[in-house]
Design a protein around this nucleic acid. Structure first.
Length: 284
DNA sequence: CGACGGGACGC
DNA sequence: CGACGGGACGC
């Protein structure tokens, strides 16, 4: 007895299983065949759809690729995000697509894709949990939910992986008795989204001195190895989520985005002028 | 008789 | 800054 939330039957598998579809931002000249050539190696592609202008039939530079499994979609994202495809020197973006019914086009963040929620025997320690799940990929941490008073396990645990594809592999392949699912983000449902981005102290901001102008676009060496560091970054709860960039060249908003919008989870950028140095600052 | 199904994090 | 077609048949 499923109502499919108003989806038409033929659209029903686009979000099944969850997070098995990727959203691409690519060059307008990239064809469906070129996409298939580069993305088939990550898994069973069920559908490729290059979005085109209804009238001119020109590609809008965005596309969707549906895989059979979430782990395949996640690995395609991890391997292909930031690469240059086709004739364009502009790096492509690869994100997990929002489900079709979603009104928000806010990006799905790695944070939401790397933590799983499992049921475990009450006798398990955190190390026991880790030893069960590390076969799917490096485990950042495990935490068991315990009775606050007695300290006894409630038989529930969170496991945080470093990469979305590893969390997906765990969900797909671990023993069914674990009943593994993706964990809901802890701050789910809070309407006050933009927390204290503005109150973080000035000293916590990292300062990046202007790199050579071209280095921002030397993406050939960008291999998504940021995944190797997300763990330690996330463990510092007090860390600022703001990045300040200093540029000798005056930048306008659009230019700022084109330089920085590859950053996963980027929420906003704004330009600040520094009256004393005539540098332009950037707050993300 | 005899063991299924359940499930959320100290702000 | 970049988000949703084509085709279809069980109740």
């Amino acid at each position: 007895m499923e109502d499919n939330s108003g989806f038409r039957p033929s659209a029903g598998n686009l979000d099944d299983p969850p997070n098995s579809r990727i959203f691409l931002v690519v060059s307008k000249s990239l064809t469906e065949d070129m996409i298939r050539d580069r993305f088939a190696e990550f898994g069973d592609i069920q559908d490729i759809w290059v979005v085109k202008d209804r009238h001119t039939k020109e590609s809008k530079g965005i596309a969707f690729v549906k895989y059979a499994k979430s782990s395949q979609a996640c690995r395609a994202m991890e391997e292909m995000h930031g690469r240059c495809l086709g004739d364009s020197s502009k790096p492509i973006k690869v994100l997990i697509a929002q489900s079709r019914g979603s009104t928000s086009h806010k990006e799905v963040e790695d944070e939401d894709l790397t933590r799983i929620f499992v049921m475990i025997p009450k006798s398990y320690t955190e190390d026991d949990v880790k030893s069960k799940f590390k076969e799917y990929g490096p485990v950042e941490y495990c935490s068991i939910i315990k009775n606050k008073n007695t300290g006894e396990s409630k038989g529930l645990a969170f496991v945080r992986f470093e990469r979305p594809s590893h969390a997906a592999l765990a969900i797909e392949n671990c023993d069914r008795s674990f009943k593994a699912i993706l964990a809901e983000p802890r701050n789910k449902g809070s309407t006050s989204e933009s927390l204290d981005y503005h109150s973080s102290s000035r000293q916590q901001e990292s300062m990046i001195h202007e790199p050579p102008a071209m280095s921002m676009y030397s993406y050939e060496q960008y291999d998504y190895s940021a995944y190797d560091k997300v763990g330690e970054a996330r463990n510092q709860e007090g860390v600022s989520k703001r990045l300040t960039v200093v540029s000798r060249v005056p930048l306008v908003q659009d230019q700022l985005y084109s330089l920085l919008d590859l950053i996963p989870g980027l929420e906003f950028c704004e330009v600040q002028r520094d009256l004393y140095s005539s540098f332009s600052g950037t707050r993300c």
